[in-house]
Design a protein around this nucleic acid. Structure first.
Lengths: 200, 200
DNA sequence: TCGTTATGATACACTGTGTATCGTAACTGG
DNA sequence: CCAGTTACGATACACAGTGTATCATAACGA
């Protein structure tokens, strides 16, 4: 199994330049207004070269979102194990604030919808893999979907209104509007769901 | 002020055909795969005729979303005045279930992201206009944003999983994960927000 | 240093958009 | 019912963006 032995320096350089260019442009214009030619130009790379690395615009954006999501999850994972949800939410907001430019460009920028969708997709896949396997109850699946998409939405709003709410308050809002209510729902689920629900 | 005296019957017919065609196609394919030519063809209308009514694809979709939002708000408004949040949430889900095809096509379909964004936009504008005026506190604005987008997101998930959760359970989930937590947040706001917060 | 490989530049076919034009058909007001 | 108005269908067109192909050149790794 000869995995990644050594990647050509030019490839690494070009890919990084393209990712950076896409991130830059995403903070300036909506995704549909970003042409592949513009990305290549900003990256200082030939137009045709783009397609030697990514099939299309979305593939590059997915790669960018993928890297962001990895850092995101790496940061969040240890927080989920602890029981103090408020501290966890505040840590997340502090982390976002510490790496403001990239989060503002990608989560709240012109490609925010696509990036958040990709982050949601990857997070769901990661969690499903971390658990036993995929077959969750409907409630578990819905709760996970709601938590992730709500947090990303709230962060997107916050990143467009940083001057109005500080990180600590934002953490408290996330904890009180998302994390705690969802915990209560899991402890005492409603009826009318598919079988396989609570394992009380 | 000569408003709408009488609209040419052909115009009404063509617009309705285009809206219906867009709705149909949105339930079958992602928005970027829906061409204006396909919409015109499905509507039984000439290609050039499309542009006599809408500037582009998004304008038609906005019109469709606008009509859906009107019906939506008309349905929800009376429920907001009542204090029983659970009953209100269940009514909303029952309403969606009663008009399943159009909601599934537009909220959960291939143009779901765009439609939900447009519904959010219009709802925010409507509420801002209904209140005194625009200048709300940061908390109010964030809460409203969160409530509307969360509900639309939850409905989108539900419309893709109708067989797993019934309308009553879905209403309870919305009430417990969105409405009630937000009410508690408004009654006891966190610190760290811009001035103009609670009017206690 | 030498063979390999990524890159730049350029040309090309293709698809979708939006505009312009003109003869025809349908509607409205009288 | 009729005459003027107006929307429609069809077609041609310019334009922009995508994705592919080709080839000489430069940069890389061993």
């Amino acid at each position: 199994m000869d995995a990644i032995i050594s990647e050509d320096a030019r490839v690494v350089r070009t890919r990084e330049a393209l990712r950076q260019a896409m991130t830059d442009l995403a903070s300036e214009a909506p995704l549909e207004a970003i042409t592949i030619r513009a990305v290549a130009a900003r990256a200082g790379v030939g137009y045709a070269t783009f397609f030697r690395h990514y099939a299309d615009k979305e593939a590059l954006l997915a790669d960018v979102a993928d890297q962001l999501t990895r850092a995101f999850l790496e940061q969040v994972r240890p927080l989920l194990r602890q029981k103090d949800r408020l501290a966890a939410a505040r840590s997340l907001c502090a982390f976002v604030e510490d790496h403001l430019p990239i989060h503002r460009a990608l989560i709240a920028g012109g490609a925010g919808d696509t990036v958040r969708a990709e982050m949601l997709r990857q997070t769901l896949a990661t969690v499903a893999q971390a658990r036993g396997r995929v077959p969750e109850s409907a409630l578990d699946e819905l709760v996970l979907f709601h938590v992730v998409s709500s947090i990303l939405n709230l962060l997107a709003w916050w990143l467009r209104n940083l001057d109005r709410v500080d990180a600590e308050a934002m953490g408290e809002i996330i904890e009180r509007t998302v994390l705690t209510p969802v915990g209560a729902l899991q402890r005492q689920p409603p009826a009318g769901l598919e079988p396989g629900g609570p394992a009380s």
